[in-house]
């Protein structure tokens, strides 16, 4: 399995070096930076730094800028991971290499592991750029519990990876990337507490946030960065994330396996 993962990692890195997906990378960075800018403009120029009384109560801090900037950066990170992993198989299908991969006795686990490891480099880069820009516009990092934050970040990658498997099967099912991914991303931005705390939403919408790994991941990450919370303080969020990951993993593995079969049938049918 690790053998296949390593080969896939090397292959993707080679492809990336030769044809760097600049438009995706820049797109992710830009959308993160725009969230930063929006937060900055709204906070300083439009609302003159005045917040709703409930905000500090709901988030445990009155640092709106850090809250919103981390939201933007983490959202961009989630979108990037989801896209890079979920699009891998359908890209093989479009470029005509899927059959060649399916012909081999290699394990799909290894293939995806290589994919996710390779894309870590890209998302880490994107994330760092957005956080750096954020630091210029008012993100406070002085209280950060660095190790907890890093660990939460890594665990989140795992959770997004599991979700990406489900997204990838949906893409193969619909034979589409554009609509499927963007619809999910729009909903994610709405219900996961990216730019505002979830309790502000109408009650009937709030449960939607529960099924997005982004919501607990972001919550935990913010606590570690803004308030310097230790890992055990965010364990409820981590358990939530782990449970979601498990569910998505089971559905995703089953889905991908089914879709591979279905896709082969429909190519020749």
């Amino acid at each position: 399995m690790f053998h296949v993962a390593k080969a896939t990692f090397i292959r993707n890195t080679r492809v990336m070096i030769r044809a760097y997906p600049w438009s995706f990378v820049i797109g992710h960075i830009f959308s993160g930076v725009y969230t930063v800018l929006f937060a900055f403009f709204a906070y300083h120029y439009v609302f003159a730094g005045q917040l709703d009384e409930n905000f500090a109560h709901l988030t445990g801090s009155s640092d709106y800028l850090s809250y919103a900037i981390l939201g933007g950066a983490f959202y961009a990170f989630a979108v990037s991971t989801l896209m890079n992993v979920s699009r891998s198989l359908i890209t093989e299908l479009r470029e005509g290499t899927l059959e060649a991969v399916l012909l081999t006795p290699s394990l799909r686990r290894g293939y995806f592991l290589g994919n996710v490891a390779q894309q870590l480099m890209r998302t880490l880069f994107e994330f760092s750029v957005i956080v750096l820009v954020g630091a210029v516009f008012g993100l406070t990092l002085s209280h950060t519990n660095v190790w907890s934050a890093v660990l939460v970040w890594i665990l989140s990658t795992g959770a997004f990876f599991c979700q990406a498997l489900v997204l990838g099967s949906l893409m193969l099912w619909f034979r589409d990337t554009y609509i499927t991914q963007n619809t999910l991303f729009a909903v994610m931005a709405f219900v996961s507490g990216v730019t505002f705390p979830i309790p502000y939403l109408p009650e009937w919408v709030q449960p939607l946030g529960l099924i997005m790994p982004l919501a607990p991941a972001l919550d935990a990450f913010r606590q570690c960065v803004i308030q310097g919370a230790p890992l055990h303080a965010v364990s409820p969020q981590l358990f939530h994330m782990a449970a979601l990951s498990l569910v998505y993993l089971v559905i995703g593995v089953w889905g991908i396996r089914r879709m591979e079969k279905r896709v082969m049938e429909s190519i020749f049918g």
């Binding site: 709204a42 009384e53 729009a186 505002f196 502000y200």
Partner: peptide, 13 residues
């Protein structure tokens, strides 16, 4: 997106 934008104002006074 419109609804998200509307709620993005929620944290403010």
């Amino acid at each position: 997106n419109f609804v998200t934008a509307y709620y993005s104002f929620a944290p403010f006074r």
